[in-house]
Protein backbone atom coordinates (compact mmCIF):
# COMPACT_ATOMS: atom_id res chain seq x y z
CA UNK A 1 0.00 0.00 0.00
CA UNK A 2 0.90 3.60 -0.32
CA UNK A 3 2.90 3.57 -3.55
CA UNK A 4 2.07 6.10 -6.23
CA UNK A 5 -0.48 5.17 -8.84
CA UNK A 6 2.09 6.33 -11.40
CA UNK A 7 4.05 3.55 -13.09
CA UNK A 8 2.37 0.79 -11.14
CA UNK A 9 4.10 -2.44 -12.14
CA UNK A 10 2.32 -5.67 -13.03
CA UNK A 11 2.69 -7.92 -9.99
CA UNK A 12 1.23 -11.09 -11.46
CA UNK A 13 2.32 -12.26 -14.90
CA UNK A 14 1.03 -15.53 -16.38
CA UNK A 15 -0.27 -16.65 -13.00
CA UNK A 16 3.09 -16.20 -11.22
CA UNK A 17 4.46 -13.49 -8.97
CA UNK A 18 7.37 -11.23 -9.93
CA UNK A 19 9.87 -13.51 -8.18
CA UNK A 20 8.33 -16.64 -9.72
CA UNK A 21 6.45 -17.75 -6.57
CA UNK A 22 3.00 -19.31 -6.41
CA UNK A 23 0.30 -17.27 -4.62
CA UNK A 24 0.58 -19.30 -1.42
CA UNK A 25 4.35 -19.78 -1.43
CA UNK A 26 6.74 -18.43 1.19
CA UNK A 27 10.06 -16.90 0.23
CA UNK A 28 13.14 -18.99 0.99
CA UNK A 29 14.34 -18.47 4.54
CA UNK A 30 17.05 -19.56 6.91
CA UNK A 31 17.33 -19.13 10.68
CA UNK A 32 20.45 -19.42 12.80
CA UNK A 33 20.21 -19.22 16.57
CA UNK A 34 22.88 -17.90 18.93
CA UNK A 35 24.89 -15.42 16.89
CA UNK A 36 25.25 -12.40 19.22
CA UNK A 37 27.64 -13.67 21.86
CA UNK A 38 26.90 -11.10 24.57
CA UNK A 39 23.15 -11.55 24.38
CA UNK A 40 21.34 -14.17 26.46
CA UNK A 41 19.72 -15.37 23.26
CA UNK A 42 19.81 -14.31 19.63
CA UNK A 43 18.90 -15.30 16.11
CA UNK A 44 19.83 -14.30 12.59
CA UNK A 45 17.16 -14.60 9.94
CA UNK A 46 17.39 -14.40 6.19
CA UNK A 47 13.91 -14.23 4.75
CA UNK A 48 14.01 -13.60 1.02
CA UNK A 49 16.22 -10.53 0.86
CA UNK A 50 15.45 -9.50 4.45
CA UNK A 51 18.43 -9.68 6.78
CA UNK A 52 17.46 -9.48 10.43
CA UNK A 53 19.14 -9.92 13.81
CA UNK A 54 17.09 -10.42 16.97
CA UNK A 55 18.75 -10.44 20.38
CA UNK A 56 17.36 -10.87 23.88
CA UNK A 57 18.68 -9.76 27.26
CA UNK A 58 17.06 -10.93 30.43
CA UNK A 59 15.39 -11.62 32.66
CA UNK A 60 17.40 -8.88 34.36
CA UNK A 61 16.63 -6.12 36.83
CA UNK A 62 14.22 -3.69 35.20
CA UNK A 63 15.78 -0.30 34.56
CA UNK A 64 14.80 2.44 35.14
CA UNK A 65 13.28 1.21 38.39
CA UNK A 66 9.91 2.87 37.79
CA UNK A 67 9.44 0.78 34.63
CA UNK A 68 9.32 -2.42 36.71
CA UNK A 69 6.19 -4.31 37.72
CA UNK A 70 6.17 -6.07 41.12
CA UNK A 71 3.79 -8.72 39.75
CA UNK A 72 5.63 -9.75 36.58
CA UNK A 73 8.50 -9.15 34.19
CA UNK A 74 8.07 -6.26 31.79
CA UNK A 75 8.86 -6.90 28.15
CA UNK A 76 10.64 -4.17 26.24
CA UNK A 77 11.01 -4.23 22.51
CA UNK A 78 12.95 -2.16 20.04
CA UNK A 79 12.37 -2.74 16.33
CA UNK A 80 14.48 -0.50 14.14
CA UNK A 81 15.62 -0.35 10.55
CA UNK A 82 19.27 0.38 9.86
CA UNK A 83 19.82 3.63 7.86
CA UNK A 84 21.35 1.56 5.02
CA UNK A 85 18.66 -1.14 5.04
CA UNK A 86 16.51 0.11 2.17
CA UNK A 87 17.15 0.65 -1.51
CA UNK A 88 16.09 4.30 -1.16
CA UNK A 89 17.95 7.15 0.55
CA UNK A 90 19.91 6.96 3.79
CA UNK A 91 17.35 6.67 6.60
CA UNK A 92 17.48 8.40 9.96
CA UNK A 93 18.97 6.11 12.54
CA UNK A 94 16.87 4.87 15.45
CA UNK A 95 13.13 4.28 15.70
CA UNK A 96 10.72 6.66 13.92
CA UNK A 97 6.93 6.75 14.39
CA UNK A 98 6.44 3.65 12.28
CA UNK A 99 9.08 1.75 14.22
CA UNK A 100 7.64 2.91 17.55
CA UNK A 101 4.25 1.48 16.64
CA UNK A 102 5.77 -1.76 15.36
CA UNK A 103 7.86 -2.11 18.54
CA UNK A 104 4.66 -1.77 20.57
CA UNK A 105 2.69 -4.42 18.70
CA UNK A 106 5.64 -6.84 18.70
CA UNK A 107 6.05 -6.37 22.45
CA UNK A 108 2.37 -7.27 22.85
CA UNK A 109 2.87 -10.51 20.88
CA UNK A 110 5.49 -11.69 23.34
CA UNK A 111 3.55 -10.53 26.40
CA UNK A 112 1.05 -13.17 25.33
CA UNK A 113 3.45 -16.12 25.33
CA UNK A 114 6.25 -15.33 27.80
CA UNK A 115 5.58 -16.52 31.37
CA UNK A 116 6.23 -13.05 32.75
CA UNK A 117 4.78 -13.84 36.18
CA UNK A 118 7.83 -16.03 36.85
CA UNK A 119 10.12 -12.99 37.01
CA UNK A 120 8.53 -10.15 39.01
CA UNK A 121 10.46 -6.89 39.01
CA UNK A 122 12.59 -7.85 36.04
CA UNK A 123 12.69 -6.95 32.37
CA UNK A 124 13.15 -8.96 29.21
CA UNK A 125 14.54 -6.79 26.42
CA UNK A 126 14.04 -7.77 22.79
CA UNK A 127 16.08 -6.02 20.12
CA UNK A 128 15.19 -6.44 16.46
CA UNK A 129 17.48 -4.78 13.96
CA UNK A 130 16.57 -4.80 10.29
CA UNK A 131 19.90 -4.81 8.45
CA UNK A 132 18.24 -5.15 5.06
CA UNK A 133 14.53 -4.77 4.45
CA UNK A 134 12.60 -6.30 1.60
CA UNK A 135 8.97 -6.33 2.74
CA UNK A 136 7.50 -8.12 5.74
CA UNK A 137 10.22 -7.02 8.16
CA UNK A 138 7.98 -6.88 11.26
CA UNK A 139 6.74 -10.41 10.57
CA UNK A 140 10.25 -11.72 9.97
CA UNK A 141 11.41 -9.84 13.09
CA UNK A 142 8.81 -11.67 15.20
CA UNK A 143 9.79 -15.06 13.79
CA UNK A 144 13.43 -14.29 14.62
CA UNK A 145 12.68 -12.86 18.08
CA UNK A 146 10.76 -16.03 19.02
CA UNK A 147 13.89 -18.05 18.38
CA UNK A 148 16.05 -15.53 20.25
CA UNK A 149 13.76 -15.71 23.31
CA UNK A 150 13.81 -19.50 23.31
CA UNK A 151 17.59 -19.44 22.84
CA UNK A 152 17.78 -17.23 25.95
CA UNK A 153 15.96 -19.94 27.88
CA UNK A 154 12.97 -17.70 28.58
CA UNK A 155 9.95 -19.85 29.50
CA UNK A 156 7.19 -19.42 26.92
CA UNK A 157 3.81 -20.98 26.27
CA UNK A 158 4.55 -21.12 22.57
CA UNK A 159 6.90 -20.12 19.77
CA UNK A 160 4.99 -17.55 17.69
CA UNK A 161 5.67 -17.05 14.00
CA UNK A 162 4.58 -14.26 11.71
CA UNK A 163 4.09 -13.70 8.02
CA UNK A 164 1.95 -11.38 5.94
CA UNK A 165 -0.81 -11.96 3.45
CA UNK A 166 -2.17 -9.45 0.99
CA UNK A 167 -4.33 -8.83 -2.03
CA UNK A 168 -3.06 -8.21 -5.54
CA UNK A 169 -6.07 -7.42 -7.72
CA UNK A 170 -8.40 -10.40 -7.16
CA UNK A 171 -5.76 -12.76 -5.75
CA UNK A 172 -4.78 -13.29 -2.14
CA UNK A 173 -1.05 -13.92 -1.84
CA UNK A 174 1.24 -15.01 0.97
CA UNK A 175 4.41 -13.30 2.21
CA UNK A 176 4.57 -10.08 0.18
CA UNK A 177 8.01 -8.85 -0.85
CA UNK A 178 8.88 -5.14 -1.00
CA UNK A 179 7.57 -4.45 -4.49
CA UNK A 180 4.36 -6.37 -3.79
CA UNK A 181 4.00 -4.58 -0.45
CA UNK A 182 4.38 -1.18 -2.14
CA UNK A 183 1.88 -1.75 -4.93
CA UNK A 184 -0.56 -4.30 -3.51
CA UNK A 185 -4.22 -3.51 -2.88
CA UNK A 186 -3.96 -4.63 0.73
CA UNK A 187 -1.32 -5.86 3.14
CA UNK A 188 -1.84 -7.72 6.40
CA UNK A 189 0.97 -8.87 8.69
CA UNK A 190 -0.13 -11.57 11.13
CA UNK A 191 1.53 -13.25 14.09
CA UNK A 192 0.14 -16.57 15.20
CA UNK A 193 0.57 -18.83 18.22
CA UNK A 194 0.79 -22.24 16.51
CA UNK A 195 -0.43 -24.32 19.48
CA UNK A 196 -3.98 -22.95 19.13
CA UNK A 197 -3.72 -20.71 16.03
CA UNK A 198 -4.60 -17.64 18.08
CA UNK A 199 -3.84 -14.37 16.32
CA UNK A 200 -1.37 -12.32 18.36
CA UNK A 201 -0.68 -9.57 15.86
CA UNK A 202 -2.94 -8.38 13.11
CA UNK A 203 -2.53 -5.18 11.17
CA UNK A 204 -4.11 -4.47 7.86
CA UNK A 205 -4.82 -1.66 5.47
CA UNK A 206 -6.06 -1.30 1.93
CA UNK A 207 -9.27 -3.09 1.11
CA UNK A 208 -10.43 -6.64 1.73
CA UNK A 209 -13.76 -8.39 1.62
CA UNK A 210 -14.44 -10.74 4.50
CA UNK A 211 -13.75 -13.68 2.16
CA UNK A 212 -10.36 -12.18 1.24
CA UNK A 213 -9.58 -11.70 4.92
CA UNK A 214 -10.41 -15.26 5.90
CA UNK A 215 -8.49 -16.63 2.92
CA UNK A 216 -5.46 -14.55 3.89
CA UNK A 217 -5.59 -15.63 7.53
CA UNK A 218 -5.87 -19.28 6.52
CA UNK A 219 -2.90 -18.99 4.16
CA UNK A 220 -0.79 -17.60 6.98
CA UNK A 221 -1.91 -20.24 9.49
CA UNK A 222 -1.20 -22.98 6.96
CA UNK A 223 2.30 -21.66 6.24
CA UNK A 224 3.12 -21.83 9.94
CA UNK A 225 4.01 -25.52 9.98
CA UNK A 226 7.05 -24.93 7.82
CA UNK A 227 8.14 -21.88 9.81
CA UNK A 228 7.71 -23.57 13.20
CA UNK A 229 9.79 -26.50 11.98
CA UNK A 230 12.59 -24.15 10.89
CA UNK A 231 12.48 -22.27 14.23
CA UNK A 232 12.79 -25.50 16.19
CA UNK A 233 15.50 -26.78 13.91
CA UNK A 234 17.54 -23.60 14.50
CA UNK A 235 17.32 -24.09 18.26
CA UNK A 236 18.36 -27.74 18.07
CA UNK A 237 21.28 -26.81 15.82
CA UNK A 238 22.45 -24.24 18.33
CA UNK A 239 22.71 -26.88 21.05
CA UNK A 240 24.30 -29.39 18.66
CA UNK A 241 26.97 -26.78 17.78
CA UNK A 242 27.67 -25.93 21.39
CA UNK A 243 28.98 -29.33 22.44
CA UNK A 244 27.58 -31.93 24.77
CA UNK A 245 27.52 -29.64 27.82
CA UNK A 246 25.28 -27.26 25.96
CA UNK A 247 27.68 -24.41 26.80
Amino acid sequence: MGGSSLNKPELIIHGKRTDGREFGELRKFRIKAGIVKNADGSAYLEWGNNRIIAAVYGPREAMPKHSSDPAKAVIKCRYAMAPFSSLSEHGRSGPNRRATEISKVIKEVFENVVLTQEFPGSEIAIFIEILQGDGGTRAAGITAASVALAAAGIPMKDLPFAVSAGRIKDKMVLDLNMIEDNYSDSDMPLAVSPRNNEILLLQMDGGLTKDDLMKGINMVVESGKKITEAQRHALKEMYADSGENGV
Partner: peptide
Protein backbone atom coordinates in the same frame (compact mmCIF):
# COMPACT_ATOMS: atom_id res chain seq x y z
CA UNK B 1 -18.06 -2.16 1.30
CA UNK B 2 -14.64 -3.40 2.34
CA UNK B 3 -12.58 -3.83 5.46
CA UNK B 4 -10.18 -0.90 5.20
CA UNK B 5 -7.88 -1.25 8.19
CA UNK B 6 -7.41 -3.48 11.20
CA UNK B 7 -5.23 -3.35 14.27
CA UNK B 8 -4.91 -5.88 17.03
CA UNK B 9 -3.55 -4.44 20.25
CA UNK B 10 -2.52 -5.55 23.75
CA UNK B 11 -1.32 -9.00 24.74
CA UNK B 12 -4.54 -11.01 24.40
CA UNK B 13 -5.09 -13.02 21.22
CA UNK B 14 -8.14 -13.58 19.03
CA UNK B 15 -9.20 -16.82 17.37
CA UNK B 16 -9.82 -16.88 13.63
CA UNK B 17 -13.53 -17.37 14.33
CA UNK B 18 -13.64 -14.35 16.65
CA UNK B 19 -12.03 -12.16 13.98
CA UNK B 20 -14.62 -13.38 11.49
Amino acid sequence: ELIRAMQKGLSGGFSVQEVS
